[in-house]
Amino acid sequence: MAYRTVLVVLFDGVQSLDVTGPVEVFTGADTYAGEPGATYRIHTASLDGAPVRTSSGLTVVPDHALAEAPAPHTLLVPGGRGTRGPDPRVIDWLREHGPRADRLVSVCTGAILLAEAGLLDGRRVTTHWAYCDRLARDHPAIEVDPDPIYVRDGHVATSAGVTAGIDLALALVEEDLGRDAALSVARYLVVFLRRPGNQAQFSAQLSAQTARREPLRQVQHWITEHPGDDLCVESLAARARLSPRHFARAFQSETGMTPGRYVDTVRLEHARRLLEDTTDGVEQIARASGYGTPEAMRRAFIRTLGAPPAEYRRRFHTTQTS
């Protein structure tokens, strides 16, 4: 089995998890193969080979200076505070060497560096949600999609903030080595295999704030774990041992969402995952997700996603195989 060289570009102010997350995934693939370096050989490089200080204060010692780094199959550019006003020499290096890589990958705001180097023009990309508007404004030749956790466009792959880099790396391992390899790595790292790329950056749990009071946090967790149950305000209030009126007011105050909107978001997210990851029928998924009837789920999908469930599933699998 031929190995793939992965080169990670380092710079002061890099986000440490943008580096270590994907690196752990690629290194884990070697563990699956049973031989170090059999599948991926990881190299890190800074501009002059000097140690870099990450945004969290950790110091990382690179393997090489960029000028001496091996030619990569996969060139990975992480994000972090250092992407704001980067060293022009890093951009120049990316502009010269980026087109030679078989695969260009960015994590979080690493997309900004690729964009500055002109490597994303004409492509659909994503980045951390907080920087999507800036990326689109500064680089009008790029189509910026703020919703997915990662986007593939030809040999270019971009991902959203921090942990989305792990999802993207798992997707690349699955592409290179197969699902069993990616599943083995995911299990070892105790992460999901894998959140699909078109999953929204804001899940229900991220869209809403976590409630301060324990009874309300328990209700949030219950809703997520039991989307098919009776989740009316009265039932949820009883679980929190509050009156319905007090519960509804407290839930919205502490989470920023009404109980009904939170339930709707959880149910839609649950139904999407079942459509993406199973072959269950729409009627079965509607019941499991708490919609009751396929028509109720159909209305929710059209209202929120602009497509009925069957069409959503078809588009998802077309995207995954293209």
Rank of each mutant, 00 (worst) to 15 (best):
L274T: 09
L274P: 03
L274H: 07
L274K: 10
L274N: 06
L275K: 15
L275Y: 13
L275V: 15
L275H: 14
L275P: 06
E276M: 14
E276V: 15
E276L: 09
E276A: 14
E276H: 11
E276T: 14
D277T: 15
D277F: 09
T279F: 10
T279K: 13
T279Y: 12
D280N: 13
D280F: 14
D280I: 09
G281A: 11
G281W: 10
G281E: 15
G281I: 11
G281Q: 14
V282P: 03
V282F: 03
E283Y: 13
E283D: 15
E283A: 15
E283M: 13
E283N: 15
E283V: 15
Q284N: 06
Q284D: 11
I285D: 08
I285L: 14
I285E: 11
I285A: 11
A286F: 10
A286Y: 10
R287E: 09
R287Q: 12
R287P: 03
A288D: 14
S289M: 11
G290M: 12
G290V: 14
Y291G: 05
Y291R: 08
Y291I: 12
Y291P: 06
G292C: 06
G292E: 05
T293P: 03
T293M: 08
T293D: 08
T293R: 12
T293G: 06
T293F: 10
P294F: 07
E295G: 07
A296V: 10
A296D: 11
M297F: 06
M297D: 04
M297Q: 05
M297L: 13
R298K: 08
R299V: 08
R299W: 02
R299Q: 05
A300R: 10
A300I: 08
F301G: 00
F301R: 00
F301M: 00
I302M: 09
I302A: 02
I302N: 01
I302G: 00
I302Y: 02
R303E: 13
T304R: 10
L305P: 01
L305C: 04
G306Q: 04
A307V: 13
A307N: 02
P308E: 04
P308R: 02
P308S: 03
P308G: 03
P308H: 02
P309K: 01
P309F: 01
P309W: 00
P309D: 01
P309N: 01
P309E: 01
P309G: 01
A310G: 04
A310C: 02
E311R: 06
E311F: 01
E311C: 02
E311G: 01
E311N: 04
Y312A: 01
Y312I: 00
Y312W: 09
Y312E: 02
Y312N: 01
